[in-house]
């Protein structure tokens, strides 16, 4: 092949990839390309297999170490289950009371965590990348699970991220700390709303909270449900610092509730995706 032709192919490859990059950058909700889906379909099972093999020695060693403490752990867990059962009975009573009050006030309870009675879907984390610019998980979901893009992913402590796309029994998840991620959030104490964006690996920024808003360190930040992706009421993190900025809003740093580098298993929330027709219809359009 001549040098000129090689240079032509080189330029063509660069232009094609540049077009791909700018097309994704200009779109507000970029769809994964056919190339990415194809490569993910090949690579994700490899990641799952490597994860299984690499976890085996650790689990075996752990099994030997834990043999001694299994009885103690069993006893402790039985006590915990009893406490949780009692707590559940108490909460069920409270829920019933809230429902009765809501009916009396003719108030429709908002859609939120726990409103849907479908069981949470468990998924194993087979690959995690926490480099400063790249924050993503690959999950292996159980057989028979219904997973769809934009499905929220949570851990026991709080919000983890959302599913970007699904291929077979694997799903790619964008973490809330990813720089391109955004979560509609609110301060639990004051219900003041804002937008959480990924920043550093262990830090989020709560934006669009005006200077006159009452925010202080240790305030809990929950999802507000206004982005149509995450249901309302999921714990996202805790305010670490509040500083005034030069413009009209606070500079608020939030520490995520979930230790994202220690994730092993996560849960997928059973939410209904927003219909495409509602997303496409502009506000105020005439029929």
């Amino acid at each position: 092949m001549t040098e000129r032709r090689t240079r032509g192919i080189f330029a063509l490859l660069l232009v094609a990839q540049l077009v791909l990059i700018t097309a994704q950058a200009s779109s507000s909700a970029p769809e994964p390309t056919a190339v990415e889906r194809g490569l993910f379909r090949i690579i994700a099972p490899v990641a799952g297999m490597v994860h299984r093999i690499s976890a085996l020695p650790g689990r075996t060693l752990q099994g030997f170490r834990r043999q001694r403490s299994l009885l103690e752990e069993n006893r402790r867990l039985r006590e915990q289950v009893l406490d949780l059962r009692l707590e559940m009975v108490r909460l069920q009573g409270m829920e019933g009371e809230v429902k009765r009050l809501a009916e009396a006030l003719d108030y429709a309870s908002p859609e939120g965590l726990g409103a849907d009675r479908r069981p949470l879907q468990v998924a194993d984390v087979v690959y995690a990348d926490h480099r400063p610019s790249l924050r993503v998980l690959i999950l292996r979901v159980r057989e028979g699970s219904e997973v769809h893009p934009n499905q929220p992913v949570v851990a026991a402590q709080g919000l983890v991220g959302r599913v970007i796309f699904v291929s077979g029994s694997f799903a790619k998840v964008q973490l809330i700390t990813d720089r391109a991620a955004a979560v509609a959030a609110m301060i639990e104490r004051t219900r003041r709303q804002g937008v959480l964006r990924g920043s550093q690996p262990r830090e989020l920024k709560l934006e669009l909270v005006p200077l006159q808003a009452n925010v202080r360190p240790d305030d809990r930040v929950l999802t507000s449900g206004l982005d149509g992706v995450y249901p309302r009421g999921i714990l996202v993190g805790t305010v670490v610092s509040v500083r005034p900025s030069e413009d009209l809003f606070h500079l608020i740093s939030v520490r995520p509730a979930v230790e994202l580098s220690l994730l092993d298993q996560v849960y997928l929330l059973p939410t209904e995706p927003i219909p495409e027709s509602l997303l496409e219809e502009p506000f105020g359009a005439t029929p």
């Binding site: 090689t6 990839q17 990059i21 994704q24 950058a25 970029p30 990348d129 480099r131 964008q174």
Partner: peptide, 28 residues
């Protein structure tokens, strides 16, 4: 040169698949 650039594109796109960045950054 051809093997070099095609190999780079393939390896870069595989790296993009495993990352959370815009697809194509590492490929480029």
């Amino acid at each position: 040169s051809l093997a070099g650039m095609l190999g780079g594109t393939t390896a870069g796109l595989c790296q993009d698949t495993l990352s959370g960045s815009v697809f194509g950054l590492h490929g480029f």
